[in-house]
């Protein structure tokens, strides 16, 4: 049964990479069920991330957000800050797609704080970029400018010319 769980996960990932997002989601749901059966929180967390990603490409941003929230909850339980940061980043982007810029900014800010804590300059730069965009969308150009400047500063520091 445990091996079956891993096989479902691998099948889900393969279908995902082939661009078959409906099939990917079906396999990852099977993987999730087996992870729950075993109380395997790490596998459950992976399944939620994979399900969130698949639903982005299915155009179901609302469903993706719910899966990413489960990912975030488990990442906190498992005390995995890198995954927590990634989940916040995914949620920020998903709420941007849902045109809920305030919530997007909330999650991008949470991502920024964790990236700073982890001294992840690349993550910090991305968070600032996203926050700049979110504040433009909210009609707050002064705040957007603050984050755009910070984004520029970090990009120069890490040598990202793009």
């Amino acid at each position: 049964r445990a091996a079956q769980g891993r096989a479902y996960g691998n099948l889900g990932n393969t279908q995902y990479l082939l661009g078959n997002f409906t099939e990917a989601a079906t396999f990852h749901k099977e993987r999730l069920a087996i992870a729950k059966e075993f109380g395997d929180k790490a596998a459950e967390r992976r399944a939620y991330s994979n399900l969130g990603n698949a639903h982005i490409f299915l155009g179901r941003f609302d469903v993706a957000a719910e899966y990413y929230k489960k990912t975030l909850q488990l990442a906190r339980q498992l005390r995995d800050q890198a995954v927590e940061a990634q989940a916040c980043y995914s949620l920020g982007n998903t709420y941007t797609l849902l045109q809920d810029y305030e919530r997007a900014a909330e999650y991008h800010l949470r991502h920024l704080l964790i990236a700073q804590e982890l001294a992840d300059r690349v993550g910090e730069g991305r968070a600032c970029w996203s926050l700049g965009n979110a504040y433009v969308s909210m009609g707050s150009p002064a705040q957007a400018l603050t984050f755009a400047k910070k984004h520029l500063q970090i990009s120069q520091e890490i040598g990202d010319r793009n």
């Binding site: 996960g9 991330s49 994979n50 155009g59 045109q99």
Partner: peptide
Amino acid sequence: GQRLHLMQVDSVQRWMEDLKLMTECE
């Protein structure tokens, strides 16, 4: 599903490009 209405947001577009190759391995 909802349409991809915000593809003009570069940061989201970049994230989705990366996401296409992102899988959590067993």
